[in-house]
Amino acid sequence: MRKLIFLLIVIVSMQSYSQELNCEVIVNAQLTGNENVQVFKTLERQLKEFINNTTWTDKTFKPQERINCSMVINVTDYNNDNFQASIQVQSARPVYGSSYSTPVYNYNDKDFNFQYLEFQNMVYNANQFESNLISVLAFHVYMILGMDADTFAPKGGDEYYAQAQVISNYSQQGNYSGWKLEDGNQSRFILIDNVLSDTYKEFRDVLYDYHRKGLDEMSNDAKEGKLSVAKSLNGLKEMNNRRPNSYLMRVFFDAKAEEIEDIFSGGPTVNISDLVSILTRIAPMHASKWRNINF
């Protein structure tokens, strides 16, 4: 009887925490010319189980609160247990009062080389380097969690970004690309360093204002919601004045450019001529989209 009670307590305690992510994982090996090799299918299945079944935080997530995201791994070459690849990571969160999901994180990580033996154990250690495969995946999981939390509360992602930085720091010992300052200005190192830097403080403010004060209010008042989105984007002007053409600006608009075009090309009319001018200056790579905005 005591054993039964103990077992029930364990089960209840385990169920008090639910996994945070609903992540679709795809391993695409077409570029290798051997996409049907079993190891790629095994890798895909193991990664999906690892990401979705690992408990990444001490928060309680209801099934409907799990963050929808995807990771597409494009393998370009492999030799025995050495894989050369890139990974496209995307996440979205629901908009209040609608069936629409808004993109939040959209990151193309081109430095994703790793070792993998079929059926190897996949274990995440919060304070210790296990493998580059685990580190890269865990890093992006915490970036997803951090950015998602920032859209719901000011600086809501602090603890998740802190863990992403811990991963970045201890993963330098693996001598894989993407974890060090000298790995270029579009690396994982630069991404988390910039997110946590006061130099780019407006980035996180905009994440909150754009989503919580803007998109989430559109179901109540579409025009006021649009005006709030426009006002939030003005905050990026200050960041751009301080550091023109920053990497975080690209990260933001990789996720948001198409959505911004759609928001301001329909619905109630608002005067956003100043916003179009600002967008053209701070994100000129999307100038064709800004030209489509009607006001």
Rank of each mutant, 00 (worst) to 15 (best):
G146V: 00
F114L: 09
W179Q: 06
V136I: 11
N34L: 11
V270W: 09
S177C: 03
M285K: 06
L233S: 13
N34Y: 11
T57P: 07
I260K: 08
G235P: 07
N125G: 04
T199L: 06
Y100G: 11
A257Q: 05
C23T: 14
E24C: 02
N82P: 01
S277D: 11
I167R: 03
V95W: 05
E49N: 12
N220P: 01
R291M: 07
R242Y: 15
T280P: 08
S101F: 06
N194Y: 07
S16D: 11
G267F: 00
E24A: 10
Q15W: 12
V27Y: 04
S197V: 00
F83A: 08
E224L: 14
S70C: 07
D209C: 03
G214H: 02
S232L: 11
I263N: 09
Y176P: 06
G235Q: 05
Q115C: 07
N240V: 05
L191Y: 02
G157M: 01
N52Y: 05
T60S: 15
A164C: 02
K48N: 14
L137W: 06
S131L: 12
E118N: 09
T60G: 04
N82M: 09
M239G: 15
M218Y: 03
Y100P: 11
Y142D: 10
L145D: 11
D198M: 02
L215Y: 11
A287F: 01
K110S: 15
Q38F: 08
S273E: 14
F139V: 03
A257Y: 01
S228M: 11
G178N: 03
L137C: 12
K201V: 04
G267Q: 00
L279V: 05
Y17M: 15
L275C: 10
L43T: 03
N82G: 02
S171E: 03
F50T: 04
R188K: 08
R45A: 14
A255R: 00
Q173H: 01
N22R: 07
E44Q: 15
E44W: 00
F6Q: 13
A255F: 04
F189I: 01
W290T: 10
L181I: 02
S187F: 02
I73Y: 09
I278P: 07
D81E: 14
